[in-house]
Structure formats: C-alpha cells, structure tokens
Nucleic acid binder design. Sequence first.
DNA 1: CGTACAATTGAGGTACTTCAACTTCCGTGG
DNA 2: CCACGGAAGTTGAAGTACCTCAATTGTACG
Lengths: 228, 228
Amino acid sequence: MLHHGSIDQFLTRVADRSVVPGIDALARTVRVTAAREVPLDRHGATLVYIASGAAKLVARAAVEREQVAAFNFTGDLVTVPGPGPHAYVLVALVDSELVVLPYAALRDAVRSDPAVLARLLDNCDAALGRCREKALMLGRKTASERIACFLLAMAPRIGATSGAAILLDLPMSRRDIGDSIGLTIETVSRQFSLLRDSKLIGTEGRSKVLLLDLPGLELRAGYQQNPN
Amino acid sequence: MLHHGSIDQFLTRVADRSVVPGIDALARTVRVTAAREVPLDRHGATLVYIASGAAKLVARAAVEREQVAAFNFTGDLVTVPGPGPHAYVLVALVDSELVVLPYAALRDAVRSDPAVLARLLDNCDAALGRCREKALMLGRKTASERIACFLLAMAPRIGATSGAAILLDLPMSRRDIGDSIGLTIETVSRQFSLLRDSKLIGTEGRSKVLLLDLPGLELRAGYQQNPN
DNA sequence: CGTACAATTGAGGTACTTCAACTTCCGTGG
DNA sequence: CCACGGAAGTTGAAGTACCTCAATTGTACG
C-alpha cells in the first residue's frame, strides 16, 4: 500500500514504525505556502505534524491583537486547540508540508498503543514546559530580558553552531516575534539594536542573527540558576 | 498490603484501579500547611497529585519577581519542572495532602500501561490548554480583561453555583492573583473595585467573589466566539 | 478587643506603546 | 547586472497604562 511520503515520515518519527491501524483514514497531507493559514476541521482539537517547514500557532485576543502561542519547526508535533474562549489558527511561516489529523480520533485510534501515547505525552510535556517559560517571560520579564530569552529559546531549536557563536536564521518577522513575546515591532527592533550595540548579537539582513555571547545573553535574559 | 489513603485515592483516580506495579516504591504522601513550599527531590521533574487542598506552581523570574504558572486544586495532577533556566516550586495555598512522585520513574513504571499514559496525556493537554490561555492573557490583554479572564477561568474549577450567579471562594491572595496574571496587587485591587462598581461581581471578605453577570464578564474578558 | 497583615485608595513616575518619518532590504523587471 | 518599488525594519517624539511609593482602611486571628 502506498503512503504519501509525509505520512510515512510522521509514522516512523511518532510511532517508531510504519503502521498504525486506521491512520490512513485520519491523516491528511497538506502543502501550505508561506503566510497562509493551515486549513483545519474545526470540530475539535487538531494534531499537526510538520514534515518540513515552520509554523506559528496564533491565538486571537481581538482584531489586530494576536498572541503567538508557539513557533514550530520541521519534525515538530503541534496540537491546535478546538473551539473555546479564543480562536486558534496555525499559520505557515515558510512553504511547509504538514500532516493533519483530528486529535480526538487519533487519540481513540491509539488508545491501547503505549508507544504512541508515550510519544504524544513527551511532546505535550515539552510544549507545556515551553509554554510555562513563555508565561513567565510575558508576565514578569522586561523587554530586554524577553528578547534575550527568545533568542536563547530559539538557539537549541533552529540554531547552527558557527564557531563559538550560534547562528539563527529566523523564519518569522519582527511582528511575529513581538506577537510571541508580548511587545510591539518597534520595541523588538529597539531591543535588537541595543543587543547589537552591546556586542551580544550580530545581525545580517532581516532574518539572520548571530548569538555572539551566550553567557552574556543568559545574564541579560535573567536566567536563574536552579539553586539545587 | 496497606496503602496510605492518599495513594489509594491517587491510584483510583489516575489509574482507574488500585494497583500499579512498583508505585509504592515511588509515591510519597506529604502533608503541607498553608503557605509552605512542597518539598521535592530536585533531580528532575516531579508529579504531584493533590489529594486535598490547593497549590500554586511558582516560577522565579528573579528575587521579588515571581510568576504563578498555575493554580491547582483537589484532584489535580501537577508536573513540576526540574532543573532548567528558571526554578519552579510548588507552594500550598491551604493545608494540603499531596502524593509526590519522581516523574521520570513514574513514566518508566507505566511505560506499557496505555490507560495511565492516556490519563497523564489528558492531564497534560488540559494544562497546556490553560497555559496557552494564560500566555494569551499575559501577552495581549489589558488589566481589566485579565481580571475578568482570571475569574472566568476559576469558575469551572472552584466555582459553586449560587442561583444565577457563581460563588468563588478564592484560596489565593491578591498578590498570588497578581503574580498569576502579571499585575501588581494594587492594580488587581483597583480592577476588582471597578468590576464591583460595574455590578459584574460582588465581594465578601477577602476571599469570596460572586460572579453576578457572566455574559458581562465574558464581554469584559474579550472572549472571541470561535467563528466556526 | 487589639494587633498584624491584607487590601484599598491616591499621587506621581516610567517602561512600553503609539504615531510618524525615514532607511534598508530584497524580489522583480528592465 | 543594476535599477526600481514595495514591504519590512529602524529610529525618534509624545502619550498612556500600569507600576511604585505612601497612607488609610479593612479583615481575621489570637
């Protein structure tokens, strides 16, 4: 039986094997071009696997007031919440290949499959951990701390080591960054300039950021060493 | 074999049965009095079941700058993150009975137990959903919207219907509320006063809040009906 | 009933936003 | 290859929502 390549990739990465009973009836492969919203069935939560590309999970607080709940990259698994007090949409940041599944139906299909459940739980734990760090940032950090936190959080996810420095090729705009960390584009821009002046980062073009001084950035981010 | 009552309760609620192999070696029952930090092994993440009481999960952004990541109540399951860029502690809001387990060891013990994994996943999904709503609130809502959101979020968790209204007996202080929604105690207090003046809520003593007008509060909270 | 702490209320300060103008980047077409 | 044009980003000046500091009032516990 023939699978689309993205679903194969999803199965081997998420289930550690090529077959999950009933998955073909659920999974749908979608190509989405940059800046386009991922089309979803809106009857409940949706699970999206990013076979390639990058996306932002956006919550609408009001017209012209959006909060980026998460950025996700190739290989990531995202759950998009269903109906609730606020509407969530997934928007591609670059041309992307995605596998889309209704979350409830998937959960039911893998109900007695501990390996897949464990994988989903790992993924959810990681997302929760990142979301808590984001909440901390949004609630109790200054603008300059937020930018440093943001860059440090991106480093392990999309950073490439470049000598002693780390190179980030950010697929999101200043507006997306601002919507993610609760600032305006102007404030984001000013803070980037300040970090550049402090020699903590270097920039190249619109999207490339070079993290020059990680300890300095961690200090700026207000990272507290866990005292234990 | 004799279990402590709280562990029994944990097992029947989380595993839907009274036995999980190896659980006795892992689980520890703890009584914590109000305002006390829950003692945890700090080698990794910890799972805490609240057999009775209430607790706040606190992240330290800096000295005198705390963010409440979550409030949890009787019957809730909380994962406390282990070492990372910021330190997390769980603090009892009232006298509480808790079951404490090292998360990694528990995960290993239930590795091939789909029922427990599914329960943990349900719990994590719910926590992630609430955390995302909190991030939205912290990033893009005004002070008055935040208070309304907070009260509406508490309603289904600890609210008691009182005629057409909902009565909340809040176990947390104004400072805790402020640390949860990213405001100072003074701003929280002022917003409570404004809501009272608008007849959207009533208050009684320090802790009791009566939600008088849910549609009005939802409007004030900036809830967007999911358009689908 | 008195004390200690929590909450409220007021006045002034500030970090970030808003509004505006300018500059840079980069894809497109000459 | 270079020039053009529009969007993205940067920088500056003024405004505002929330914070900080301070004093008062309220609440619950001994």
